[in-house]
């Protein structure tokens, strides 16, 4: 690990000021950052420890939603009684991720910012445009079992590893940030993560030095909520494919639906066209296949991950069948 200056922030203003310095990084749970620093994939020169900041509470908002402090751990959030009662798919997604030890450390803000688990990003002997812009992508033409089938570019085919963010995307979450200036604003999660394009080293729209302070969930929308994760072993593995679903039926037809997909792209994936195709229709296998056709119209495998295309289709069919009471 490269040497760094350790700065423990006592308040948010100090934290933002310190993080505005060159090559500075915030550290919260540290479960991903320290892993990457040991491998020298990430080499911050200053670590701004934000763990003492007051961002650890979960509060009901005036709009009837939930404001989740950025430092709320994945464990605490998964076990929170309001999350369990009103946003169960978020609890399910958190419990499907990592291990008990990691969930006790990993935070809400940090989870959103975790880096890809692409093998080539982790291996500093390999070309990686995300780690070293302009160096190339060793994943293309390499081992691609974990890689993207949607939204990839000729520069990067990495996937976003989070389960939590997939659930939050289906719940229309917003990310509350404080800019370096101290100005607070909210960014819809669907606009927060970016596609790789020609700049795969940029993964979010978060400005340099800005601090994630909370995640907001809107008032509970109800419906049947499911988080289905398909992985290579039964526990403690990243998703090959995951689906977060929220479905409301009225008079035998799909009245509301939100679908978010993990393990398929550089960001948690949501496609409004897929949802439009389902709304107002009676659930059937043919309908679910139409939805999958729309979702996967531009899907492209890299070889090892070709299986993800039929896997997404089958998982979507299974999730929608379960969410609509077996009608498919």
């Amino acid at each position: 690990m490269k040497p760094f200056e350790y700065l423990r922030a006592a308040d948010r203003g100090t934290a933002r000021r310190d993080a505005a310095m060159p090559a500075a990084a915030y550290i919260a749970g540290g479960t991903n950052l320290l892993d990457l620093m040991k491998l020298e994939v990430m080499q911050p020169e200053r670590l701004v420890d934000i763990n003492r900041l007051d961002m650890k509470s979960v509060e009901t908002t005036g709009e009837g939603g939930l404001r989740i402090g950025a430092l709320v751990t994945n464990s605490d959030l998964a076990a929170h009684e309001t999350v369990i009662a009103d946003y169960p798919l978020l609890s399910r997604a958190l419990l499907a991720g990592a291990s008990g030890q990691l969930r006790n450390k990993a935070t809400t803000g940090g989870n959103l910012l975790q880096r890809t688990r692409c093998y080539y990003f982790y291996d500093t002997a390999m070309a990686c445009n995300k780690r070293d812009p302009g160096s190339g992508c060793a994943a293309i033409g390499g081992a691609t079992r974990l890689h993207a089938i949607l939204g990839a570019s000729a520069q990067c085919i990495a996937t976003h590893p989070s389960d939590m963010a997939v659930a939050m995307l289906a719940l229309d979450a917003e990310v509350e940030i404080e800019e370096e200036s101290g100005e607070t604003r909210r960014i819809p999660l669907r606009e927060f993560h970016t596609l790789p394009g020609d700049t795969p080293h940029i993964e979010t729209v978060l400005p340099q030095g800005a601090l994630i302070t909370a995640v907001h969930l809107p008032a509970p929308a109800g419906g049947t909520q499911i988080y289905r994760k398909v992985r290579d072993r039964a526990s403690y593995a990243f998703a090959l494919v995951s689906i977060a679903a929220r479905v409301t039926l009225e008079d035998g037809k799909i009245a509301q639906v939100a679908l978010a997909f993990g393990g398929v792209a550089h960001k948690p994936w949501r496609d409004p066209e897929v949802e439009k195709a389902l709304i107002g229709k009676a659930p059937s296998r043919a309908l679910f296949d139409t939805a999958a056709d729309i979702l996967l119209a531009d899907a492209r495998g890299q070889g090892d991950n070709d299986f993800k295309i039929p896997l997404v289709r089958r998982t979507l069919r299974a999730v929608l069948t379960e969410a609509t009471g077996g009608a498919g």
Binding site: R8, G30, T31, L47, N51, Q101
Partner: peptide
């Protein structure tokens, strides 16, 4: 009171 991986955290934290 909580179990964590001691390898993935800095002592100074």
């Amino acid at each position: 009171g909580r179990r964590i991986n001691s390898c993935l955290t800095l002592a100074c934290m």
